[in-house]
Design a protein around this nucleic acid. Structure first.
Lengths: 244, 244
DNA sequence: CGCCTTTTTGATAGCCGTCAAATTTCGTGG
DNA sequence: CCACGAAATTTGACGGCTATCAAAAAGGCG
């Protein structure tokens, strides 16, 4: 029975996870990954539309997305709302909550999803003995800051079509990294959610889709997007670094 | 002579720095602060208009602002530019560079300034033995992410006047924390830089200043701003959390 | 299959960007 | 300390982009 238990552990641990090279374990050796796996043993399933966490609830664990797709959004008292990000497999959720021990946004599943729970106190603890883990964790936080800066550039200086092109190229690249097609994919979010993320109204997003389609840069079939000319789409947005 | 040296060390170390409660040493005991001080011994002066670092240069050290005022901005190949932040004493610069070992923005002094150099490798090293340092460093990075999210909200959903009100309230609060007046201060940056930060053109910023002045919410004398009614100014921006 | 949500498209209005010119401020050198 | 020129700021007029309002069409879930 001990054997069965070990196998189950192994199965669900970081060591054998297909996302090992995308997620927190990047750069760790086998022994280190094993240690990390013991900290990250617990998992959680979230149904489409369900909340992974709510704003203002206590923060104790980070979450790594094992499968599925999430959005995070902030909601102000006055009703103002904004999607701050869309999140795919291997990405970490909850980094914003470290600063105040409370979640500062809602995380909502856009399809049935599964996450790995990473108790933050334990992560800090073991990262003291695994320098490469600490370093990679710092890189992940820093990358989030860089991402946010490029979204600020987008929101501050791009027109609707440029924003949408930028968004599609970003999606394309992230799908490609995960082994999916970079030119044909299904968007999990609504036009309204895209608009909130890009600082546009849903009608403007819809119009921008139509415009890009008329210019034969993409094909739009509701949520199914096909990119017909990646290079020309990149030109659209002036060769900026497209939401790194 | 050994005595003189020790005194000099002490003088320039974190232990006696007036920003101890604002900066990296928050939450550390005397012994820990002393250790940190040895890592942070080197300082650097930057003249107004000078660069602390350039985009794409190698990253090795973080900087804590000892005195003065900085802006950070990203510059795209196509000429698109955006101010990503204004930075005051006690704040850390360079966090964005951790992810790729290269600086992703320019940091420029808006007045004669002095910074403390924090070799990042050494910071990671000693934070392994000082858990409270590691924790606070994580909080600082996380806070940067939260700040960026609130700027995204601002850029994505606020009108010009609301953005400016939000910006002024943010400045006000940060001056107050540092012991300066929260209702009367000198802005170090130009209208164009404010506009770049807020996703507006300089003329629009100027008009928004005039509008707020006509409504007797503030008094504007070029770079000198006086806030006449903090509460009404907060109402202006719909009680959002004003660039936390 | 039917209802509800999402998306598309059109018409109109308002905010902000652009262009322009006058005025003030600031930095430099005499 | 003053004077000059460059830079920054303010204000006006106009146009374009996007929000808003509205209605129809398409898609999805029970």
């Amino acid at each position: 029975m001990s054997t069965n238990f070990d196998i189950a552990q192994l199965r669900s641990s970081c060591a054998t996870c297909s996302l090992r090279e995308l997620c927190l374990p990047v750069g760790l050796n086998d022994q280190e990954v094993h240690l990390l796996g013991e900290v990250v043993s617990h998992k959680r399933k979230i149904r489409r539309g369900g909340y992974l966490y709510h704003t203002s609830t206590k923060f104790q664990t980070l979450y790594a997305i094992k499968s599925g797709f999430f959005k995070t959004c902030i909601l102000e008292e006055d009703g103002r709302q904004q999607v701050t990000g869309f999140h795919m497999t291997g990405e970490l959720l909850g980094l914003d909550a470290i600063s105040g021990d409370l979640h500062t946004c809602d995380a909502i599943a856009l399809e049935n999803s599964e996450v790995c729970e990473i108790p933050f106190a334990k992560l800090e603890e073991i990262s003291r003995t695994i320098p490469s883990l600490m370093r990679h964790f710092h890189r992940i936080m820093s990358r989030e800051i860089v991402r946010d800066h490029s979204i600020m550039l987008l929101l501050g200086s791009m027109k609707a079509e440029e924003r949408l092109a930028s968004f599609l190229l970003n999606m394309s690249r992230r799908f490609a990294i995960r082994g999916y097609s970079e030119t044909s994919f299904i968007l999990r979010m609504t036009r309204e959610e895209i608009g909130s993320y890009l600082g546009l109204k849903l009608e403007t997003v819809s119009r921008a889709f139509s415009k890009l389609q008329h210019e034969t840069l993409i094909t739009v079939n509701n949520k199914h997007i096909q990119i017909l000319d990646l290079d020309r789409l990149k030109l659209k947005m002036g060769n900026t670094s497209c939401l790194t």
